[in-house]
């Protein structure tokens, strides 16, 4: 079973949510962010180059121009490798655990796995983020020795930041699996 739906993130950009049901106790949710627009890349590149050309105009040193090219290329690479997340996914496997992974635009992937005996619950929480108050989905962790206390909190979908309607859909789906085990 597979569905694909369009939602927006907290800044109003369109994101897509892809729910895959592998079996009755295993589901995968993937939130894909929009691709970096060409216009944005052009604006940043133009800014750096115009600036460097102004400096070159006064200093007449060609090293400035070569530096500008290197800076643009390196920062683009760093951006797609460390900052720009293409899609984030949450794999919930009943009785086993939760796997969180985020794929960067360069193809780099980071994955974390949380065992079921450390998971207390998955909830939607509210937080103050920059100058906004937003909803986000998070996993509550517990120490297996103290089953009643929450030891720490792992926020989910940190870079895509979907809005409440999308979170509620994921939340309900997750709870269906978590309540079975």
């Amino acid at each position: 079973m597979m569905e694909d739906e369009a939602f927006t993130d907290i800044n109003g950009k369109t994101i897509s949510l892809d729910c895959q049901s592998h079996s009755s106790f295993c589901r995968e949710f993937t939130v894909s962010s929009p691709k970096t627009s060409m216009a944005k890349v052009m604006v940043y590149t133009c800014c750096v180059w115009l600036l460097s050309y102004t400096v070159f105009f006064f200093t007449q040193n060609t090293a400035v121009l070569s530096a500008a090219i290197v800076i643009t290329l390196v920062s683009m690479m760093l951006h797609i490798h460390f900052v720009k997340v293409d899609h984030e996914s949450l794999l919930v496997i009943g009785s086993l655990g939760i796997q969180l992974s985020s794929n960067y635009a360069s193809g780099r992937e980071t994955t974390t796995f949380i065992e079921m005996n450390k998971i207390k619950d998955i909830v939607i929480n509210e937080a103050i983020y920059m100058h906004q108050i937003i909803y986000f989905l998070c996993v509550l962790l517990k120490d297996p020795s103290e089953p009643d206390a929450v030891s720490s909190v792992v926020p989910l979908f940190q870079s895509s930041k979907p809005r409440l309607n999308c979170l509620v859909k994921i939340y309900k789906s997750c709870q269906e699996i978590l309540s079975k085990c």
């Binding site: 927006t8 800044n11 109003g12 509210e126 906004q132 937003i134 809005r163 409440l164």
Partner: peptide, 10 residues
């Protein structure tokens, strides 16, 4: 910057 319609109702 942040239109009202983008804020989720609590």
């Amino acid at each position: 910057l942040v239109p009202d319609r983008l804020m989720d109702d609590a």
